[in-house]
Simulated assay, not measured.
Amino acid sequence: MGSVTTSKHANGLEYVDINTPLCKARVFMQGAQIDYFEPVGQKPLLWVSSADDYQPGNGIRGGIPVCWPWFGMSDNPDFPQHGFARTRIWSLESVKMRNQIVDLKFTLKISEEDKQYWPHDTSVELLFTLSDTLSVSLVNTNNCDYEVSLTQALHTYFPINDIHQLTASGFSGAKYIEFAKGPFPQEGDSVDFTRETDRVYTNLGECQELHTPDGIIEVRRENSQSAVLWNPWIEKSQRLSRFNSDDYLTMVCLEAANVLEDKVTLAPNESHTLTTHIRWKA
């Protein structure tokens, strides 16, 4: 049947360890951040920099950090980039196993300190379904008597072996903003990588693929018409924290998102679920 246990990293961070006939995975309480997912008999589907030392208070440089309740910089420049959820301790509310599939539910309580950033009465949950594929859902519910708007992303880092041999496809018909310029229409269906790439896509179809030397990774989204495609390339890699100068060669981020005109606006008592589904297609 498999096992789901809790343990502690050498640096003190607690995590959930999943080991079933279908997959091996690890999810940290800090940020409810999954940093490892390996379907049995296949290669891992998530990437983490070997420069990351898993220090409490720092989001892990890899896996799937949760950007919430805003993506990128806030309107207030003193607020943390990509929100505060990725560095807070979440609560593991439930663990269920059904036919070797594991379901995990995490919740985040907004602290008094964090109310300076987010004074709204909302609840947020992160749901994992772990089998031979990985599904992650970010659930927001507005408990206020007024509308609340937010942006968010599941900032997924993928292992791609060699950036020079990577082609990302499934972008036909979309538009993107890059380096604060645009929007530009996407030319063709695919993207190759020869420089720093930092594209925020909108009007995007639900499925993209990463064609790597190790196979094709399929990335599907639900309740999302936007996504982020990112590789820091050479110069920026030298400035990033917890990131080796040559890490850009072996990773790419393709992030399910609700950003720009795709932001989430919740009426009182309304909920929204952003989901990403990840698997080796071939």
Rank of each mutant, 00 (worst) to 15 (best):
G2M: 03
V4W: 08
N11Q: 15
V16H: 07
N19P: 01
N19G: 01
L22F: 04
K24G: 04
K24E: 09
A25Q: 01
A25G: 02
V27S: 04
F28A: 07
G31I: 06
D35W: 01
E38D: 05
V40D: 04
G41M: 08
L45R: 04
W47Y: 09
P56K: 13
G57K: 15
N58W: 15
G59F: 12
I60E: 09
P77W: 14
K96T: 07
R98G: 00
V102M: 00
K105R: 15
L108M: 11
S111G: 10
E113W: 03
K115W: 07
Y117P: 01
P119D: 13
V124F: 06
E125C: 10
F128R: 06
V139H: 12
N143F: 09
D145P: 04
D145F: 09
Y146H: 14
S149I: 09
T151D: 04
P159F: 01
D162I: 06
I163A: 06
H164E: 11
T167L: 05
A168H: 03
S172K: 15
A174I: 05
P183R: 00
P183M: 04
F184R: 07
P185L: 09
P185Q: 13
Q186N: 11
Q186M: 15
E187S: 12
V191C: 07
D192L: 06
R195V: 09
T197F: 03
Y201T: 07
T202M: 13
N203S: 12
C207M: 13
D214Q: 14
I216K: 10
I217C: 07
E218R: 14
R220Q: 14
Q225C: 11
L229P: 05
W230T: 07
P232S: 07
I234P: 01
S237Y: 06
Q238D: 09
R239A: 13
R239H: 14
R242Y: 15
N244K: 12
Y248V: 02
T250S: 11
A257S: 15
E261K: 13
D262G: 12
K263E: 14
P268S: 09
P268R: 10
S271W: 00
H272G: 01
I278A: 05
K281C: 05
